[in-house]
Design a protein around this nucleic acid. Sequence first.
DNA 1: TCCTTATTGCAAATGTTTCGCAACTGCATT
DNA 2: AATGCAGTTGCGAAACATTTGCAATAAGGA
Lengths: 149, 149
Amino acid sequence: MTGIAQRVAGFEGQLKDAGLRMTQQRRLILRVLAEADDHPDAKGIFTRAFALDPTLSLSTVYRTMKVLETQGAIERHAFEDGVSRYEHADQEHHDHLIDIESGEVIEFSSDAIEELQRRIAAELGYELVRHRLELYGRKKRPGVRGKKG
Amino acid sequence: MTGIAQRVAGFEGQLKDAGLRMTQQRRLILRVLAEADDHPDAKGIFTRAFALDPTLSLSTVYRTMKVLETQGAIERHAFEDGVSRYEHADQEHHDHLIDIESGEVIEFSSDAIEELQRRIAAELGYELVRHRLELYGRKKRPGVRGKKG
DNA sequence: TCCTTATTGCAAATGTTTCGCAACTGCATT
DNA sequence: AATGCAGTTGCGAAACATTTGCAATAAGGA
Ligand SMILES: [Mn+2]
Ligand SMILES: [Mn+2]
Ligand SMILES: [Zn+2]
Ligand SMILES: [Zn+2]
C-alpha cells in the first residue's frame, strides 16, 4: 500500500537516526526491493540493481541487506536451498508455502497456527519469540478430491 | 526403543538392496548417530567418530550422511545458524523448539499443528508433502504468568 | 583367493557470505 | 561553495560449510 517514494523517505529517516547515510546504492537497492514481488536472493537483487547501475558491487548488496535487516526494513528467509532470500517488511507477518515442483513461493497467514505455536511453546515453558514455518507441497489437480472422494 | 545393533543390521539390509556396502566407516558413523541424543552437525559427528577411529575423514561423514538420508535412515535439519544437523529417523515425526539463550533444542509434536498445516496447504490448493517448523523461544521464569496475571 | 566396483582419504574446488583496505562520498559545518 | 570527518563502496581475498576428482583401498560375491 505504501508508495516506493514514501518508503524510501521513511527509511532515510531511520538511517539518519542511526547515524547512517542514504547513499545512491542504498536508494537503488531499496527501489529494487520495493518493486520486487518475489523473494530474491542477494545475487538476484544484485542482478536487477546492476542493470540500473553497473558500478554496483555484490558486496554492497550484502552489506545493505544487513543494514536493512537491522533497521527492520526487510526480512530474511532461508528456505530449503539454504541461500538467504529477502523481502521488504512493510507487510504483516506471513509464512510461506513452496511449490516443490515449480519453486513458486506462496504467502499465507493463519491466526490459528500463530496462536497454536504460541500455545505449544508455552506448554513447554517457553515464550515464543519467533518462528519459522515453511510448507512444501504439490499442486492438487482440480477434480481430484481426498482419499475417500 | 530399537537397539543399536538391530538398527545397524536393519540398515545393512537396506544398503545391500541398493547395491551399496556396509563399511567400517558407515558402521562407525551409524553407531555415533545411534548414541547421540542431540542434533549434531557433520563436524560434531566427525569429532565423535574420529575419537574411535582416527583414520576417518570428514568427507566420508558428509558422504555417509547423504547416503543415510537417501535411505531414510536419518533426517537433516538446518536451523537458524545454517549448518546441517542430523538425527536418526527411527522416532516418529516431531518438530523443534530452540532456546534462543542456550541453544538447547527441545523436541515436540502436535497432531493439531500437523493437521492445521495440512488444511492450510489444502486451502491453497496444495497437497502438503513436508514442512519445516521451528519455534524460537525464551524460557519463562516460573511464577511469572501472562500479562494479566 | 580373485575380481569387480563401491568407497575412502586427500586436496582442491564450490558457492555463499564476510572482511580488509584504500579510494570515495554523504552531509554537517564553516 | 569549500572543507573535513566519518560512513560507505568496490575489489580482491578470506572464511566456512559442503562437494568433488582421483588414485588407492576394501567389500563381498564368485
Ligand atoms: Mn513473503
Ligand atoms: Mn529432533
Ligand atoms: Zn507465522
Ligand atoms: Zn511437524
